[in-house]
Design a protein around this nucleic acid. Structure first.
Lengths: 254, 254
DNA sequence: ATAAACCATTACGCAGCGTCAATGTCAAGA
DNA sequence: TCTTGACATTGACGCTGCGTAATGGTTTAT
C-alpha cells in the first residue's frame, strides 16, 4: 500500500507539515518520489513512523529518535533510563511550581482580601511619596499611573492577617537584629535566628522563595541605600550584619 | 541607588542579555539612558524585576507577565487559576510519560532479553523476506542494512515470555474473530471481546497505547493490503469486521 | 597610555513545527 | 474541454527566551 503525505499524515494523526519536516531533517524519508515530485510512503515507512511517534510520545527529541532508529547498536535501555531521570526532574519542578501557584492563590483567597484602602493609606502614601520625591514626575510620566500603583498591588493583595503577621515579624527581626549585631558573629545563634525570621518574613511577600533570591536581596541590603538606611537607623552596621547572616544562612557566603 | 545592566543582572541573578531582552520586548524598561547610551535602572525597576522573576518562577510566559504587571485591573487570581490548570495538565502528561518509560524499561529488564537469534530466525526471516520480495534491493540500498534490521529491533527486544504471550493472544484473536464475523455485529459481545484482546496484544508491541493510535491502526487494516490479506485469509471480511469492532471499541466510529 | 572590563547594537541559532505564499498536479463535474 | 477544488511542491518567516558571537565605543584601573 502506498500513501501520499496527507494520507499517511491522516493515518498517523500528524500534520503533513510534520512529515515534510521529518523528511527534511532526515528522520523519515519517503519510500520514493514520483514523477510529479510527490512523496510516496510505503508500509515500511508506516512502521518506522509508528516507532518514531512512540518515542516522540515519550518526549524524546527527534535528534535522539534518529539515533535510536538508525543506530542498530544503540543502548536503548540506557537512553530510556536517562530519559526517565529527566522526566522525574521535570515533574519535581512542576510539582513545586504547582505548590507555589496554589500557595499564591490561597493567599489571594484566604480571609478577606484587604481592599480597604484606608488601612494602607499611610503605607501606600509613603511608598508613592518616596518614589515621587526621588524621581518626581518622571516615573509617573514614564510608566503611567497604572504601573506605579501596580507596584503596590502585591501588598494590597494581602489579607489583614498576613499584613499583621508581616508587621509582627518585621518588628521581631529588628529586635533580634539589634541584639545580634552586638555579638559581632553573623554565623552565630542570634544572627542565624534573625536570618531565619527574615526568610519567614520574606515568604509573606514572595510566593517563590529561593536561596539565590534571598542571597541576592541580602546583597542589596548594603548596595541599595533605601535598605541600608532603613536597617542602620536602628543600629549602625545592622544592614551589613544582616547581609552576612543571610549569606551564611543561605550558604552563599564567599 | 542606580544600577547598570550588569549590576542589576548580578543582583537579580539573571544575565545582562535577559535584561536587554526585557527592555526590547517592553517588559522592563530602564529608568533612563545616560549620555553614553547606557541603561540605568533605579530601585523601582528592582522591585518590578522582582515581580517579574516571581511570575517567571511560576512558569508564566513573559507576555502574560507583562499583562499582569502593566494592567492595573488584571484578574490576577483568574490568571493564576488558569495557569494552575495548565500546570496540572502538564503534570498529568508527564505522569503518563513516566509510566510509559518505566513500562518500557521493565519490558527490557523483565526476564532474559531474547538475544537468542534462533528463536526468531523464522519470524525475522519472514519479515525481511517480505520486505525484500516487495521492494527488492531498493529498500536495503536506500536505508542501509541497519535500518531494515532495526525495524525488527523492537521484536527482538521482547522477552521469551512476552513473545509467547503475544503468539497466544494472536491465536486467540483469530479464533474469536472467526466466530465473531458470523454474528455480523462488530459492536456485539464477541466483536468487542476481539477488540479488547487486540488491544492487549497491541500493548505488547507498543509501549504507548492510545485510542487514537489503535483506531488509526484499525483503519490501516482495510487500507493496507498486508493486513487485510492476513486477516481475510482466515475468513473473508475479517479485516473489515475487525476494523469496525476496534473503531466501536475505541469510540472512534463515524 | 594601555589593557581589562564594561557598555551598546545587530543578528544568527535552538526545537518543532504552524502558517502563509506562490505555483504545479490531479480527479471530477458542467 | 474547461474549470474548480483539493491536493502537492519548495521556500521562508514566526514563535519562546534568551545564548552567543561580532564589532565597536566607554569607563576604570594601573
Amino acid at each position: 500500500m502506498e500513501y501520499t503525505v496527507k494520507q499517511l499524515a491522516d493515518l498517523a494523526g500528524v500534520s503533513s507539515r510534520t512529515l515534510r519536516y521529518y523528511d527534511q531533517i532526515g528522520l523519515l524519508k519517503p519510500f520514493c518520489i514520483n514523477e510529479s515530485g510527490y512523496r510516496i510512503y510505503g508500509s515500511m515507512e508506516v512502521d518506522l513512523l509508528q516507532q518514531i511517534l512512540f518515542y516522540r510520545e515519550l518526549g524524546v527529541s527527534l535528534e535522539r529518535i534518529k539515533e535510536i532508529i538508525y543506530a542498530p547498536d544503540f543502548q536503548e535501555k540506557q537512553a530510556l533510563l536517562e530519559h526517565r531521570e529527566q522526566l522525574l526532574k521535570k515533574r519535581e519542578r512542576l510539582d513545586s511550581l504547582i505548590a507555589n501557584v496554589e500557595k499564591t492563590i490561597a493567599a489571594l483567597e484566604g480571609g478577606e482580601i484587604m481592599t480597604d484602602q484606608e488601612k494602607f493609606e499611610g503605607f501606600k502614601k509613603n511608598l508613592v511619596d518616596e518614589n515621587e520625591r526621588k524621581y518626581g514626575h518622571e516615573a509617573r510620566t514614564k510608566y503611567g499611573d497604572a504601573v506605579v500603583d501596580a507596584s503596590n498591588a502585591k501588598v494590597l493583595g494581602m489579607t489583614e492577617e498576613q499584613y499583621n503577621r508581616a508587621n509582627e515579624l518585621a518588628e521581631e527581626i529588628i529586635q533580634n537584629l539589634i541584639a545580634a549585631v552586638d555579638t559581632n558573629d553573623p554565623g552565630g545563634k542570634l544572627g542565624q535566628k534573625t536570618a531565619r525570621l527574615h526568610r519567614e518574613w520574606l515568604t509573606l511577600y514572595w510566593a517563590a522563595y529561593s536561596k539565590e533570591a534571598h542571597a541576592g536581596l541580602a546583597e542589596m541590603y548594603t548596595a541599595d541605600e533605601r535598605f541600608s538606611a532603613y536597617y542602620d537607623q536602628y543600629k549602625p552596621g545592622a544592614a551589613e550584619f544582616l547581609r552576612d547572616a543571610i549569606l551564611i544562612y543561605t550558604g552563599k557566603e564567599k
